[in-house]
């Protein structure tokens, strides 16, 4: 498991709808903020890159210092972003694919307004379990 990992889901309107610090390292608020700043900045790169490929998984697209940003763009242009310091591309890909499935289940909920925050605790638990498994 990676020591640092920050997973976020960004809606197509660039609003974060889910965030989780899934790294094994001690959680510091400062660091968590920095992670989000890096992910936010990486959106600029994703924005251009997403249209150059038909693949959903864009691999690692950006980095700052030792932290790498991997991105998975769904068809609805929701971006699953992971900031990590490990180099386990396959694991990350599987992680993204399974989280995507979970996210689709959330979308199927008629009470969920697309683009609003994902507040399901079930989703949170599942995502963290997946992170432990793959990253």
């Amino acid at each position: 498991m990676a020591s640092t990992a920050c997973f976020m889901i960004i809606s197509k309107n660039d609003i974060p709808i889910y965030e989780a610090e899934v790294g094994s390292a001690l959680k510091k608020e400062e660091a968590a903020h920095q992670h989000q700043f890096i992910l936010h900045a990486a959106l600029d790169v994703v924005q251009d890159l997403a249209w150059t490929t038909s693949a959903m998984f864009l691999k690692s697209i950006d980095r700052f210092n030792d932290l790498v940003v991997s991105v998975y763009v769904t068809a609805g242009h929701t971006r699953l972003m992971l900031l990590h310091d490990s180099r386990n591309d396959d694991g990350i890909k599987s992680f993204f694919q399974e989280v995507h499935e979970l996210y689709i289940k959330i979308l199927l909920n008629p009470l969920y307004l697309p683009g609003s925050r994902v507040t399901s605790s079930h989703f949170d638990t599942k995502v963290r379990a997946l992170a432990r498994k793959y990253i």
Binding site: N13, D14, I15, P16, E19, A32, H33, Q36, F37, H40
Partner: peptide
Amino acid sequence: LFESQWSTL
């Protein structure tokens, strides 16, 4: 109206 509202940042 609330595009890119990333409250943490």
